[in-house]
Design a protein around this nucleic acid. Structure first.
Lengths: 206, 206
DNA sequence: AAAACCTTTGACCATTTGGTCAGGTTGAGG
DNA sequence: CCTCAACCTGACCAAATGGTCAAAGGTTTT
């Protein structure tokens, strides 16, 4: 690590630290409830320093949302349109469950945003998400037409997958409370994933 | 409407108006994001008047949450433990979908609360919800033991039902956006309910 | 009619909070 | 060394907001 690199690296590290903690604070308190001071404290930086990297709270929030969206797209690609239904859906559900476990805060921020009418991400919903959904719906409809799965409304099937997998992130606190206050362990996550996958696959006759 | 009744009625009407609008504002902006001024404006009352009926913002919020919990319990009872799986689950899912349609804001406030770690309703989760869940899990397990449904983890089945039905309330904005910006009509709600019910019932071999 | 009580409201206050800024520090290049 | 640009930070400010209060307006009871 020499000369010119040092500064850039330090900058990236600061950005990373801030974004990471901002995600957690935004998830826990919502956009308005999260304060720059709280994010600063969590990041171990003075508040003014945050404003050096991100001019406004909204700008910081946007970046957080965009990172989440990137992760979300990663899962989206695991829905392999060329595979058969069993394979494609199994992989997709597993990936979504993994994301719920690895990035619960991101999922929570996204949920919060949608609940509040998606003031920031409206364009994502209308463009990227809408297009992605349309292509998958077409794929699922083809499966139905080819008799590979039962007659189901593909849109509602997608909603069911999203809802169920994201539940383990967004309602993490409720799930943990009903688990005696203990976070799910490896085996429990496995069981959850398996159950969700099996019920859905069986439910659509795949 | 004479004498002593008038005051009580007026009082109840004021309370109703405030609670109704508070629910919407809390759903749209979260606890911190909602302002007493905004709730007052929506209710057509001066802010000071809200504080006459509810000493603090938190007290108002608690009442809103409690109303939601009451509605939630109403659905809970529709899970008739004496019926057979097909009947019990069909009725329960339908009821939950109806609530999602009739009280989306209530569901959103609840979701927001849970996402943020349930600072207010923690006791509900640990007591009422926990007990309710336990009894239903026992019922479902009996169904499994009696061979009435396939071998599934009853807890995850419940989570799936909650997640899927509440998705139509909490993610209403996303659902509407992906529906071309139009709210679901009667037929679409019917289709959603039917699809959810069928996939789940078939998925557990009921 | 008048006392007692409930309800309404505009004006006000203390605190919180997003954002600014001037001055300081650090490290790269000459 | 010295200069310059990038980076950091304590102190500060204006606006927003939860909550208070005293006075006024109604309604019920005696």
């Amino acid at each position: 690590m020499d000369t010119a690199r040092k500064r850039n690296t330090a900058r990236e590290e600061s950005l990373e630290v801030i974004l990471h903690h901002a995600e957690q604070i935004f998830a826990e308190f919502g956009f308005k409830g999260a304060t720059m001071q709280a994010i600063a404290d969590a990041s171990g930086l003075p508040k003014a320093n945050l404003h050096y990297y991100f001019p406004t709270k909204l700008a910081l929030y946007r970046e957080v949302i965009e990172r989440i969206f990137t992760i979300w797209l990663e899962a989206a690609n695991s829905f392999d349109t060329s595979a058969n239904p069993r394979e494609a859906l199994t992989r997709y559900i597993r990936k979504k469950m993994e994301i719920s476990r690895a990035h619960p805060c991101g999922s929570k921020v996204w949920a919060n945003e949608v609940i509040q009418g998606a003031p920031i991400i409206q364009d994502y919903l209308q463009t990227t998400l809408n297009e992605w959904t349309d292509t998958r719906i077409r794929v699922i409809n083809r499966w139905v037409a080819e008799g590979k799965i039962a007659t189901v409304d593909s849109r509602h099937l997608l909603y069911m997958i999203w809802a169920t997998t994201q539940h383990y992130a967004d309602f993490q606190h409720q799930v943990v409370t009903l688990n005696g206050g203990k976070r799910l362990n490896d085996a429990q996550w496995d069981a959850a994933t398996k159950n969700v996958t099996e019920i859905i696959l069986k439910g659509i006759g795949a």
